[in-house]
Design a protein around this nucleic acid. Structure first.
Lengths: 99, 99
DNA sequence: GCATGCTATAGCGTTGCTGCTATGGCTTGG
DNA sequence: CCAAGCCATAGCAGCAACGCTATAGCATGC
């Protein structure tokens, strides 16, 4: 874990900055979504290449996304979810309990 | 309703195209999210300008988003939700029931 | 009439995600 | 050893969302 990818380091720097609460949350979201998708994919025994094809993208895009390389856009998330026979749920709900 | 904005027409065209299932879903999501945010904002009795300021953006950005003008990105949604004291929930869950 | 406040659009520069190809490392099987 | 498959990155073009200013429409109040 000594050396990391370019964007992984950049993202980490961002998250460490003082007034970066928003960007931090976004990066965190990207990370967790990536993990969720990876989990679903592996549960189905699919390779990144297979998922990529099913979702209309390339293996590199899947890899980048799963690693949290970028904050994905909703269209992409939707296609991935669809390929995985999953539902994409996006909601803005009044805060019930403070994090 | 005879004349519409540029992007409203563009988006409608996209949604009408034959093989545009994915883009259609994205546009739909944008629309519903916009409505949800607008509702929350109005519940608080805020103007677009006030919300914009609280979320670190301008009134025009809020208006464009609420009208479904663009498919919002997760960072923006997060900031809006935060300004509205709301939680942004994004999840990819295995399909429980077919739509 | 005029001023004020709220919302909707237009136009434009900037940023960042997407989509792609190509490559390298790693493991497994022949 | 070599081939094949999987995953991670780099580098680049293209494009859509963002962020902004300015403006117009439409009410309301003076």
């Amino acid at each position: 874990m000594a050396e990391r990818s370019e964007w992984a380091q950049l993202r980490e720097q961002r998250m460490a900055e003082p007034g970066a609460h928003e960007a931090y949350q976004a990066a965190r979201l990207a990370f967790e979504l990536g993990r969720a998708v990876r989990q679903l994919r592996q549960q189905r025994g699919w390779s990144q290449t297979e998922l990529a094809h099913a979702a209309g993208m390339t293996q590199s895009a899947v890899a980048r996304f799963e690693a949290g390389g970028t904050v994905p856009t909703l269209p992409v998330l939707d296609r991935l979810a669809d390929a995985l026979d999953a539902d994409l749920i996006v909601r803005v709900t009044p805060r019930s309990h403070i994090a």
